[in-house]
């Protein structure tokens, strides 16, 4: 059973992703903003992070940078889920070490497939 942390500021998206991940048999935790996310990363030790980019406090890119810079957390798989869909954003996300950059509006089925792939590796 893998631990997955979902970070997004939209309650409906959180709720949906939580539902889908749980159903796929993962241990899921949710965070509504950057601060909660950082706290959860340190206490929950997730294998994988579903990370929104635009949030009220900290942006997802910074969180990813934080994770990748830290020895203890740098192996966490990061998957961006974002409404920012420009090439430059996607490139930036991948450069920061994210495994995937999924554009909103995404399909929960695609998300599930991507996560299965990533966790199998």
């Amino acid at each position: 059973m893998k631990r997955i942390l979902v970070v997004d500021d939209d309650p409906y998206i959180l709720m949906s992703l939580e539902f889908v991940m749980k159903k796929a048999g993962h241990d899921v935790m949710i965070a509504r903003n950057g601060a909660e996310a950082v706290e959860a990363i340190n206490s929950f030790h997730p294998h994988l992070l579903l990370l929104d980019v635009m949030m009220p406090d900290v942006d997802g890119f910074s969180i990813c940078r934080y994770i990748k810079a830290n020895e203890k957390t740098k192996d966490i798989i990061v998957v961006f889920i974002s409404a920012r869909t420009q090439e430059t954003d996607i490139e930036k996300g991948l450069q920061l070490g994210a495994a995937r950059y999924i554009c909103k509006p995404f399909s929960t089925r695609d998300i599930a497939r991507h996560i299965n792939e990533l966790l199998a590796e």
Binding site: D10, Y12, I13, M15, S16, L17, F19, V20, K23, A83, R84, T85, K104, P105, F106, S107, T108, R109
Partner: peptide, 21 residues
């Protein structure tokens, strides 16, 4: 378009969940 994507995302996700379950 960016502002439209967020509600679209949740609508799509929730519809899929209802449909798939």
């Amino acid at each position: 378009t960016h502002e439209l994507r967020t509600p679209l995302t949740s609508i799509r996700a929730m519809s899929e969940i209802v449909y798939d379950n």
